[in-house]
């Protein structure tokens, strides 16, 4: 993989590329939401309709997994998570800034650390919600279900949930970017005559990547809310 620019701060390693990309995603998302949420009216039109549709969409996801009154409590989390990951997935498809051989802007979710950070946050949030609803005792009793012998299996399940949730997104987006890069290299690898061949291929792959990015964001949020609902509804 191409080298990345990192720096040390308080003994921690920071990746400049990830930080820039993350901030860009956050700024795009917030700017969009900010613009859409100006001049809110009882009778919505235009951009307000769009924003309300976006909210209804994520509310629909958590309604179908957690319950009908879930949007009040988990709506904001699902909304922010879905659109952050969606934009993060798509960012690398239209912006790819590379200086020398160091990439500065790409899809943040194409980095396993970022994807796993989000899956860790989702799992932590699920456990937090479980503890909040059932108390520590009720929550940890859930690991002994159906009998205490299942404890290792349940613990392993938590680990696999964490890994699969993160790596699924990472794998899809990373593969998408990798293949896009390979097709781009192909175009200029052997003179310009390959460009007409590679351009439609790249176009098709970009379109498919958009599709994959949307699906993966949807899957990520759906699975996260499923984990939350599992933690909320542990049988007595």
């Amino acid at each position: 993989m191409e080298p990345t620019r990192t720096f040390q701060f308080l003994g921690l390693t920071f990746n400049v590329s990830n930080m820039i990309s993350g901030v860009i995603v956050a700024v795009i998302l917030f700017a969009f939401i900010f613009v859409c949420s100006r001049n809110l009216q009882l009778k919505p039109k235009g951009k307000q309709n769009l924003l309300e549709y976006m909210i209804d969409f994520t509310n629909g996801i958590i309604k179908s997994t957690i319950g009908n009154d879930a949007p009040k409590k988990y709506g904001l989390w699902a909304f922010t998570l879905f659109y952050f990951i969606l934009i993060a997935n798509l960012l690398g498809l239209f912006i790819h800034i590379q200086v020398g051989n160091i990439v500065y802007v790409k899809s943040p979710t194409a980095d396993p650390i970022v994807a796993l950070t989000f899956s860790l946050m989702s799992l932590t949030f699920a456990m937090y919600s479980g503890v909040e609803k059932l108390g520590y005792k009720g929550h940890f009793k859930g690991f002994l279900q159906p009998v205490f012998l299942f404890l290792p299996i349940n613990l392993l399940e938590e680990l696999t949930n964490f890994l699969t949730l993160g790596i699924r997104v990472y794998g899809n987006i990373f593969a998408g970017e990798l293949l896009a890069g390979i097709i781009a290299n192909l175009a200029f690898s052997n003179g310009l005559w390959l460009v007409p061949v590679a351009a439609p291929l790249e176009l098709a792959w970009q379109g498919f990547s958009v599709f994959i990015g949307c699906i993966q964001a949807y899957v990520f949020v759906t699975l996260s809310s499923v984990y939350v609902s599992q933690k909320l509804s542990i049988e007595e």
């Binding site: 990192t6 390693t13 920071f14 943040p108």
Partner: peptide
């Protein structure tokens, strides 16, 4: 590339 800084930053 286990950059704990990135995790913290993203959180």
């Amino acid at each position: 590339g286990f950059n704990v800084g990135d995790m913290l930053f993203y959180a």
